[in-house]
Design a protein around this nucleic acid. Structure first.
Length: 424
RNA sequence: GUGGGCGUAGUUCAGCCUGGUUAGAAUGUCAGAUUGUGGCUCUGAAGGUCGUGGGUUCGAAUCCCGUCGCCCACCCCA
């Protein structure tokens, strides 16, 4: 093999692109109903942006970013997640001065992380994400969760769980971190090596550790929810009320902390047991301090991101059937040069009338063309030979029944014969 | 970064342990089975530097070593 796609990247071949288009369409319809508008930001950003937002102690920033110097000596990074660039756009264009809230989404945003690839984890993947700016009320948290939930259920998802937690705000988080640190320090020797480092740098992340010994210790660790301030507690209570009101099931998960530094108060994930090792289909939360951190005013915000490849993999494992693209309405082909030209002309006319029509570019025999029509599930076939061309009439074959119907060789008559155009 | 599995036609794989004439199957592609009509069936054709480099041997897809790549899991995350 001469060339291969780089490790951890994937092609979307014509045989599978319809699956992408299906989820894209569903997502666009849902975002429209929720009042979100699309944004597009560059694939590259200044490295500094991610250090400031995602956080320089996170794994993502420390060891997973594609960072390089461009020819002007600037440090540039391929975005490892979608929120930072969106927030940068929000601040750079002064969008905070407009009517709030500002509800935006990005779709098929390429995201890069240098990791060892495995099922449901790539070095380049594509995210759908939403951000709701200027909405401090917990109903905004509930809205984005509801939207993700809607998208999943509309696709036929089953066995999903919303996991929810609050990691507090800057006011109460110090109090919690102190308590957690004190608790963990007492068990320092039992923690894994990584966690001993985390204990100093970012103790919250110890809660996320999957090592057995650490998990054991974590079961008795203080819970964030027991330390949050009154405002944060009220925020979570209200959020739960909203979710209850619309019947979205969730479970509180005191171990849920998430790996990006910008979160405040609400953090959530939507997870599936069916999705293999990569169970997290969607992750997000509130990040009230981020806009200010990036140089804007104090603006509350909440959002989430989900990976399209992982979603597609999940649907696949669930056995969800994605509707296949419609086959062509009619295949018209001619047997000699004059007939081929007539076929070309008719196909052109039918396309202008809104039909999916096609002709033969390979030079196949009549038999082969019918075989081709059968394979591609073309709905109708019209053969133009010498006699048809001179008579100006031909027979259209309805492939499903084998029935033949006489038509005059005009796009209009063919259109009327094959019926309503499904592809308008 | 750590651990495990695997690299043979376009695709899915057999053959490898117990080295031996032109490396197989299925599927897909193309062509035929009386004159211009598909799906089923039958026949035929095309398609492979056996990932790659070296070693052992009279002889290597097969045994040994290196290397590259892919997959899966851990970590982390979508």
């Amino acid at each position: 093999m001469a060339y291969q796609a780089p490790k951890g990247t994937r092609d979307v071949t014509p045989a599978e692109s319809y699956r992408w288009q299906y989820v894209e369409e569903l997502i666009r319809k849902t975002t429209a109903r929720y009042g979100f508008r699309e944004v597009r930001t560059p694939v590259i950003e200044h490295t500094e942006l991610f250090l400031r937002s995602v956080g320089d102690t996170t794994d993502v920033v420390q060891k997973e970013m594609y960072t390089f110097n461009d020819k002007g000596g600037r440090s540039i990074t391929l975005k490892p997640e979608g929120t930072a660039g969106t927030v940068r756009m929000f601040v750079e264009h002064g969008l905070f001065a407009e009517t709030m809230p500002l509800k935006v989404y990005y779709l098929n945003c390429p995201v890069f992380r240098y990791e060892r690839p495995q099922a449901g984890r790539l070095r380049e993947h594509h995210q759908f994400g939403v951000e709701c700016f200027g909405a401090p009320e917990p109903s905004a948290d509930a809205e984005v969760i509801a939207m993700a939930w809607d998208i999943f259920t509309a696709m036929g998802a089953r066995d999903l769980t919303v996991k929810l937690n609050s990691i507090g705000c800057p006011k109460c988080r110090d109090r919690y971190q102190a308590a957690l640190k004190a608790y963990l320090a007492a068990h320092r020797d039992e923690l894994c090596e990584d966690c001993q480092v985390r204990l100093e740098k970012n103790p919250l992340r110890v809660l996320d550790c999957k090592v057995e010994s650490c998990k054991k210790i974590n079961t008795h660790a203080p819970h964030t929810m027991d330390y949050v301030c009154d405002e944060c507690r009220t925020h979570m209570d209200k959020l739960r009320g909203y979710l209850d009101a619309v019947g979205i099931p969730y479970e509180m998960d005191p171990m849920l902390v998430r790996g990006l530094d910008y979160y405040t108060r609400t953090v959530f994930e939507i997870v599936s047991g069916a999705a293999g090792a990569q169970g997290t289909l969607c992750g997000g939360g509130r990040y009230d301090g981020l806009v200010r951190q990036i140089g804007g005013p104090e603006v509350a915000a909440v959002g989430f991101g989900l990976g399209i490849e992982r979603l597609l993999l999940y649907l696949d494992q669930l056995g969800v059937e994605v509707p296949k693209p419609e086959p062509v309405d009619v295949l018209i082909f001619g047997m000699g040069d004059g007939e081929r030209q007539k076929a070309f002309e008719l196909v052109n006319g039918l396309r202008k009338l809104g039909y999916a029509a096609d002709t033969d570019h390979v030079g196949r025999s009549v038999k082969a063309n019918f075989k081709y029509a059968g394979k591609t599930e073309a709905k109708h076939v019209l053969v133009i030979g010498e006699s048809e061309l001179t008579a100006g009439k031909g027979n259209i074959k309805v492939m499903a029944t084998g029935e033949q119907i006489e038509v005059s060789l005009t796009a209009k008559d063919i259109a009327e014969t094959i019926g309503g155009n499904q592809n308008e």
